[in-house]
Design a protein around this nucleic acid. Sequence first.
DNA 1: TATGAATGAGCATTCATTCAT
DNA 2: GATGAATGAATGCTCATTCAT
Lengths: 201, 201, 201, 201
Amino acid sequence: MPRVTEQHRAARRDQILAAAVRCVAREGFHKTTMADVIREADLSAGAVYLYFRGKDDIIRALAERSIGRVAHVLVAMQEQQPVVRPEDALQAALEELLSTAGEAADDLLRVGVQAWGEALRDEAVHATVSTQLRRLRHTMADLVRRAQAEGLVSKQADAESAAALLCGAIPGFILQRLVLGDLTPASYVDGLRGLVSPAGR
Amino acid sequence: MPRVTEQHRAARRDQILAAAVRCVAREGFHKTTMADVIREADLSAGAVYLYFRGKDDIIRALAERSIGRVAHVLVAMQEQQPVVRPEDALQAALEELLSTAGEAADDLLRVGVQAWGEALRDEAVHATVSTQLRRLRHTMADLVRRAQAEGLVSKQADAESAAALLCGAIPGFILQRLVLGDLTPASYVDGLRGLVSPAGR
Amino acid sequence: MPRVTEQHRAARRDQILAAAVRCVAREGFHKTTMADVIREADLSAGAVYLYFRGKDDIIRALAERSIGRVAHVLVAMQEQQPVVRPEDALQAALEELLSTAGEAADDLLRVGVQAWGEALRDEAVHATVSTQLRRLRHTMADLVRRAQAEGLVSKQADAESAAALLCGAIPGFILQRLVLGDLTPASYVDGLRGLVSPAGR
Amino acid sequence: MPRVTEQHRAARRDQILAAAVRCVAREGFHKTTMADVIREADLSAGAVYLYFRGKDDIIRALAERSIGRVAHVLVAMQEQQPVVRPEDALQAALEELLSTAGEAADDLLRVGVQAWGEALRDEAVHATVSTQLRRLRHTMADLVRRAQAEGLVSKQADAESAAALLCGAIPGFILQRLVLGDLTPASYVDGLRGLVSPAGR
DNA sequence: TATGAATGAGCATTCATTCAT
DNA sequence: GATGAATGAATGCTCATTCAT
């Protein structure tokens, strides 16, 4: 019976979070009401509180889900065999980010932007975001060092700084993509490649 | 008397917005109450409504003020004579961003992050943010083209893509700076320089 | 099977009421939730509803149990042979009240105080409390009359009024004991004896 | 302007408390909703919260008002010149208690019974009740000692114990009066006088 | 009998905005 | 222009009770 119950529990939490993602993508954390989530999840008020402590708890879970996805994508990438140029890794990560299955990819990105804002005022969300950001940077730095070992990147480059820049390019891509809607991973990373290629030709 | 009245009006609006910046930096747009702003501005409830239509009006003004600052900094930079490498322009812009006088620079950056989130749900804020983002990218593209003309950047690079990447690096800097607190403009842009320098040395 | 079933039923009811007494002593009738009682009784929600119609039913049973105890103590006392002075009967009753076995005596007294309040708003609880109060007074009046017959109390005294006063002294003892915690039956009844003894000595 | 504002404030608080007394007398502390009080006070929800921190704050103020009245009555009595027999003082106090002007006397007594119950679970109400109870007992003990000095009460009586008993008679009077409705101060105190008068006549 | 997930009406409280002074 | 008491719809959350298993 624990099996069924645990599965049930996880499924219900997911049902609620998926509904909340859609609401928050539309209205942001604070304009989304519990009534919105309850209606979207097609549950009763009491049921939602059986699976989450309250609205804050849902917000934190959403922050984790949205911010975690980015780091997750890169970690999965880094674990695959061939060493690649960091630019290529960035491009692959951005492409992966836009193709989330099951859930509308855009919705999760929108929730992520909300999470950035919330990290500045809620200690728990801040903890989630800073942890994931650090993990992202750490993974990226490893990637850069492996590229340096293969001669794909100059040995003089500081891997940590390069990782910070590469990670830093991600929010800017998401933002421009969501606000202006005119960027593809390829064109964006080509901008980096253009700057990288030697001048004077 | 229009002179005095107009000055008075502008001063009052600024007093209210400065107060609102401090509140929003602390609690975000939606957890900041009008009562918070009114108290922080040391005014009466009625007074605030003489200068702003309502809370949304204040939010829009804050979005403009915070997002506008970034573009403003770069435009001012581009208007100065010598042509510089885009990386140097980016570094100078980030440094300028951290040294806002009068208002705590961090507070305005925090309000900016809130504005990104709000742009996804409020049409008016979206208009402000997208306009400023486009202006930023346009200015940056000009800068890149001038650098190409001087041989500082490869002629094969696509100026628009490079501008998108360079602009995209800014939100990531702000976010890492506010959340992790461990980045300087110099180290961040060095990350870009490291990737740019030819490998194999 | 009726035997076993009936015993089982009584045992379950008692298990639930005992749990409810502990909860209500802590939090009062209305801040005690059914969930509290269910947890304290170590049963399931459904089980409790097999033995009680609902929360009101439990409240009424608790009122009966707590208020009934006082009258029960005095009735038991009156049935014993020797005729005593009413003051001595009061003292013995108060002592008996503080020494309830099995259940913490204080808990039941606390529930009693809750029942006084509930009697003012719930007709069923009012019926219980007024019945028990009347029974208490009736028993006490009998006691006074028997003491008068033995010359222990002035024949001119009105037995009904004396009974009302003696019964009326009980809530005040309970209240001062629970709130101030500094009264013993002996010292309290000595207060009465002091007033009774002729002045001028 | 402070004068007007302060008076206004006190008047509004009183308006709300008077409404709350009527509600609580009917339904008890916890079955009285804020909506009940708001409706009875003929105010808006927001207005009530301008004068009280919340429901708990109102409950505490009601406890103070109801319990304080009893002690207040006795203190006022003790300050008058002639020394009286404690029984007479008790009777006068009970009579005063039943004749509160402006507010229905019964309503305030009912709120008092609620306050006894609340004192057992809310620390703030407990503090109010225990303070007032102590003040009541202190005043009564003074009264007894003055009666002893005048030879109205035996010198051998312990004033503190007698005071405890006399104070203890008050809740019992209130309770029997509210629940059974058949007691007058005179008949009740006559019960005490009957016990006091020497037997054997 | 027994379970415990689900229900949904009801509650205390907040807050953007107004308007009589 | 300036004030701040007043408004009341809206919000997050609770809890007595039911019922499919």
